[in-house]
């Protein structure tokens, strides 16, 4: 266990970077995913098609491919960035957005159709029906699955460690290499810091779920 105590500053730095990657990617993915879900239910066929294709491709390919694409293909296409961290954020948010879009879409479908009909019949336009009536109700019902997706995102961010981003897992790998005799302790330390993010998220999920439930 000494190895954890001795390297606490490294763990802490990795922890903060993991938290940063997860938080930034999570916010982008939530926004992008909601927009994709809105496109999926919009009356415009082209938007529906785009959203469906996006979700199907990103959801059904490994995250590593998204990382390779962001870290290697994008720079060749002329998208340059200083740090690999940016590539990691692009890959993580693009990938997670697909799952969020599916969750939000299922939430939209769970709102009774009469809610939209009532909104339309008092003269609301499509955007108003969606933003004022459907999404506020849909998002409440999908908070538990959304938080599950965010927990997965936190863990998925470890893939960034393989792409030269020194987050929790990246430091963990370094430490394991330099302390070959204490690999188990090093990895337990890494797991502990992941739990420090994911367990509170799970608790938050159940608290929020109870608070925002809508009675019908």
């Amino acid at each position: 266990m000494d190895v954890i105590i001795e390297n606490l500053p490294l763990y802490w730095e990795g922890f903060l970077r993991t938290l940063f990657l997860s938080a930034v990617s999570g916010v982008i993915a939530l926004l992008l995913g909601t927009v994709l879900a809105a496109a999926r239910v919009s009356p415009v066929a082209a938007l529906r098609g785009f959203s469906m294709a996006y979700v199907e491709i990103l959801r059904n390919t490994p995250l590593t491919i998204a990382f390779f694409f962001a870290a290697i293909v994008l720079p060749r296409l002329g998208v340059k960035f200083e740090q690999f961290e940016v590539a990691a954020i692009i890959a993580l948010s693009a990938y997670t957005a697909a799952f969020i879009a599916e969750a939000v879409r299922s939430g939209v479908n769970s709102v009774p159709v009469g809610q939209a009909e009532a909104a339309r019949s008092i003269g609301m336009k499509f955007g108003q029906v969606l933003s004022l009536i459907i999404l506020p109700q849909a998002l409440r019902t999908v908070i538990p699955p959304l938080i599950n997706i965010l927990i997965a995102l936190v863990k998925n961010s470890s893939v960034a460690g393989a792409f030269f981003v020194l987050e929790l897992f990246g430091y963990g790998r370094q430490l394991a290499n330099s302390n070959g005799d204490q690999v188990l302790a090093v990895l337990l330390g890494v797991a502990f810091f992941y739990l420090l993010i994911t367990v509170p998220l799970g608790i938050l999920a159940s608290t929020v779920e109870r608070k925002v439930a809508i009675a019908r």
């Binding site: 009774p112 009469g114 009909e117 009532a118 909104a119 019949s121 009536i133 009675a215």
Partner: peptide, 14 residues
């Protein structure tokens, strides 16, 4: 301009 009242009320639940 056309008010509508539904069988299942459809009040905005939230």
């Amino acid at each position: 301009d056309v008010g509508m009242v539904f069988q299942s009320f459809n009040l905005f639940a939230h």
